[in-house]
Design a protein around this nucleic acid. Structure first.
Lengths: 139, 139
DNA sequence: AGATGGCTTCCAGCAAGTGCAAGGTCAATG
DNA sequence: CATTGACCTTGCACTTGCTGGAAGCCATCT
């Protein structure tokens, strides 16, 4: 299979596949003309990578997961550890974003959004008014 | 004020402040010895930037917001627009992360995490089993 | 033979900084 | 006066995970 074929089958852009080879995640063979020649196993790895990436695993995690996958003597605890630590990472991100979202939504709510210049959003950014840190908006 | 002072006062690393100058967000004066010389207004801008960044605004949004802040003829609608579009962006991120979190949590839950090699996490990554897309885990 | 289209390589760049190294300045001390 | 140490300067490389483009080879169709 050429790169275009595996790109289509795996759903990954050809560029990404070349990049994955460059960083050693896959090692496709080469045909006489210099083209990469992908085996079923390469395609399988790429699909694995695509799914791991879509779950947000970092490339280095993907490398670890691939290694665990190929290791018949792995313990599922090792896999679970990787996944759990990634889950923690996701939770921290969600928490941070939710905090931002809350503050921002308050500010947007308080902004008239008309043609006058007065704007609580800018006022907050300028003064660091911590009003959004407590519950009451009209105290 | 030297860069160390504004770094301390604004809470931003000196490196970041230099970077902000490099990309034209601030324009501190220079002392005879070549040191950056920050005015109150520079410090104010840096604090503004720090708060905008902490709300997750992209640098280019920060530039826009600073410009709006300095423009006494702005309309708050313009500010609100920037904020709302950023809020949308945050919401999309939260949604994506929450989706990931859900799938990952299911997989982690299903994984024994012992010293045996059998692992639903790897199985899912390998086969793309869409079991986590429906509600039942044991059907 | 020429025109696509696919493949190859390498180089550059994105966001938003961070880290390091080599060197200039300043204030205080021996 | 020399030196130490803290602070400042610049520039370059590196980060993550690709993505885009240029220049050129290869394969196929007409």
């Amino acid at each position: 299979m050429n790169i275009g074929d595996v790109a289509q089958l795996s759903g990954l852009p050809a560029k990404t596949i070349r990049y994955y080879e460059e960083i050693g995640l896959i090692e496709p063979l080469r045909a006489a003309n210099g083209y990469r020649s992908f085996r079923e196993s390469d395609l399988h790895k790429l699909a694995f990578l695509g799914r791991a990436r879509s779950l947000g695993f970092a490339i280095e995690d993907c490398r670890t997961l691939l290694a665990l996958y190929r290791d018949r003597d792995r313990s599922s605890a090792d896999v679970k550890q990787v996944a759990r630590s990634h889950l923690d990472c996701i939770d921290r991100k969600i928490e941070g974003l939710t905090e931002m979202r809350k503050t921002l939504a308050h500010l947007i709510d308080a902004c008239a959004g008309d043609d006058r210049p007065d704007c609580p959003i800018l006022a907050d950014l300028a003064t660091g008014d911590p009003a959004h840190h407590c519950g009451r908006q009209f105290g």
